[in-house]
Write a protein that binds this DNA or RNA. Structure first.
Lengths: 232, 232
DNA sequence: GGCATACCTTGATTCACATCAAATTTTAAA
DNA sequence: TTTAAAATTTGATGTGAATCAAGGTATGCC
């Protein structure tokens, strides 16, 4: 036991694999290996071809691309229970992004053949996989929407409200999921702009900032500045 | 015959359904209906929930979102043989975009249950579906990359080179897939900016513009202005 | 043809955000 | 603690592309 059953337990707890049987989990676990990644380490470079995908068990990694001019843009901050690399694996094309650990992390690498076996055995699982990719796709569409028709301030507010994730009116304390530098990049801002916006919102009495901890004082007020997408 | 076999023929020719057996195509066709959409018509609004997905048989539609301020951003221009709406269907969430016909169009609507049946019957098809969504996802990542770290000019050049799709050095004639207004929106530009950039490139002797027809005179020169993503 | 409607271009101006430069604070390590 | 390195803030300035405002030019309709 030990390693093997640990992996089984982690796998079984992933949203994606929630509904698999013990047998199926065991099958996946056989094609899975553990990877430890210390802070700052690159997992794979842009251009890599993946023969499997990854799940974060502990820690945090970022997916990002870099321009020839050396700028870097964080596409995604991936935390425990979340996976990445599926699309690149299914496509069999070079990855458009690279992956770097933001903290010391523990990942699981699940081999393609092992996942395919699960898909072949269980079409409900295949559907769940499709739904998973669809959600990812939806997220990217939202990003595109944010970048193209919302201002810096609106993007930040949207981000904060998502973290706050509480429809209550009262003050909510939240922690930025990463350094301001990384958060800024994720929101397509410079660190300077992020700092100024946070200052401005604090000035306006809408939030309080203490390092990475942000207290949302007035969700209503923030929402008013952040025209939420109305259905219809 | 007629309608029914027409649909079968169209379905069978779609990249997604290429490798299905005649039986399987027939099964899909049973859950498929034809939709005619005249130019300017809205197929579904933002916020709609889809019980199936669409394939363009003839014509052209756009997927776009609009801001409260009335701006509109085209996410995708969809032509014959291409499909859309799968992700929204799998997710069972409101669509983040609306769909409007750019020309008189003929679409096929493929019901969810019919697709699910195909997935249940044939896991290779499920895999192809996964690969299809992955490709879509990859495209969106590219968009995000373009919006966040390339200039207007670079985005346009990238777009032109993709349309040119010929590694030859000589002049290539291509047609913009839609009106300049729509193309501009797709590239996250105003029509004014698009016009100016085209003018500038023509001035520089790199292209020639005559309405929607664009002659690429110097692919090399264009590529030099458009740092292509290097793997590695 | 003549008229209207959409489409595109051109110029002047503005603005949001980036960039550059320099403190200042926080964190980590010795 | 002391010091070094990293992260963050603050201020001054620059700029790419949007916006505003007219003109032109196709395209289709009567």
């Amino acid at each position: 036991m030990g390693k093997q059953t640990d992996m089984g337990r982690i796998l079984a707890n992933l949203p994606l694999f929630q509904q698999l049987s013990a047998d199926e989990i065991a099958g996946l676990a056989a094609g899975t290996r553990e990877i430890r990644l210390s802070k700052g380490r690159i997992l794979f470079q842009k251009g890599s071809v993946l023969e499997g995908f990854y799940v974060v068990a502990r820690g945090q990694v970022k997916l990002a691309f870099s321009s020839p001019q050396g700028n870097e843009k964080v596409v995604s901050i991936v935390g425990p229970g979340q996976s990445f690399g599926e699309a690149v694996m299914f496509m069999e094309k070079p990855s458009p992004v690279f992956t770097q650990a933001l903290e010391d992390s523990q990942l699981l690498y699940i081999a393609k053949y092992s996942l395919f076996a699960a898909i072949d055995r269980d079409s409900a699982f295949a559907r769940r996989m499709l739904a998973g990719l669809s959600i990812r796709l939806h997220g990217l569409i939202e990003d595109v929407e944010n970048y193209s028709l919302r201002s810096s301030t609106q993007r930040l507010i949207g981000f904060l409200l998502q973290l706050a994730e509480a429809p209550t009116g009262g003050p909510v304390v939240l922690n930025l999921p990463a350094s301001k530098h990384v958060v800024a990049s994720r929101l397509n801002l410079t660190p300077e702009t992020l700092s100024r916006i946070l200052h401005g919102l604090a000035e306006a009495g809408l939030i309080e900032v203490k390092g990475r901890a942000i207290t949302v004082l007035d969700i209503e007020g923030l929402s008013r500045l952040d025209p939420p997408p109305r259905a219809g």
